Computed example of a mutant assay.
Amino acid sequence: MDHPAIRTQKGPSTKCTYTSSNDPLTSTATTALFARGDTVTVSDLNQSHFNPVEPAEHYRGRADMGIFTALNEQRNASRNGHSPAAVKDEIAAVEQVDLLVFQFPLSWHRPPAIVKGWMNRVFVDGGF
Rank of each mutant, 00 (worst) to 15 (best):
66 G>R: 13
93 A>D: 09
37 G>N: 01
95 E>C: 08
45 L>M: 11
69 T>Q: 04
55 P>M: 04
39 T>R: 12
52 P>I: 00
14 T>D: 12
13 S>R: 07
95 E>A: 15
30 T>N: 09
22 N>Y: 08
19 T>A: 13
67 I>T: 13
71 L>Q: 13
60 R>T: 15
104 F>P: 00
37 G>V: 01
69 T>V: 14
57 E>A: 15
61 G>F: 07
27 S>H: 11
16 C>D: 14
69 T>N: 08
80 N>E: 06
93 A>M: 12
95 E>I: 06
96 Q>G: 13
10 K>E: 15
30 T>K: 08
94 V>P: 00
38 D>S: 08
102 F>I: 09
52 P>F: 00
51 N>H: 02
23 D>L: 13
88 K>D: 07
10 K>L: 15
34 F>H: 14
92 A>C: 02
41 T>P: 02
45 L>S: 12
67 I>A: 11
38 D>H: 12
12 P>L: 10
77 A>K: 05
89 D>I: 01
82 H>S: 10
54 E>Y: 04
71 L>H: 11
68 F>E: 01
81 G>E: 02
67 I>Q: 10
16 C>M: 13
100 L>K: 04
14 T>R: 15
44 D>W: 00
80 N>S: 06
26 T>N: 07
98 D>R: 11
99 L>W: 13
64 D>P: 00
77 A>D: 04
55 P>A: 04
38 D>F: 09
53 V>I: 12
99 L>G: 05
39 T>C: 05
15 K>D: 14
80 N>W: 03
59 Y>F: 15
22 N>R: 12
61 G>E: 09
27 S>R: 07
95 E>L: 15
36 R>A: 12
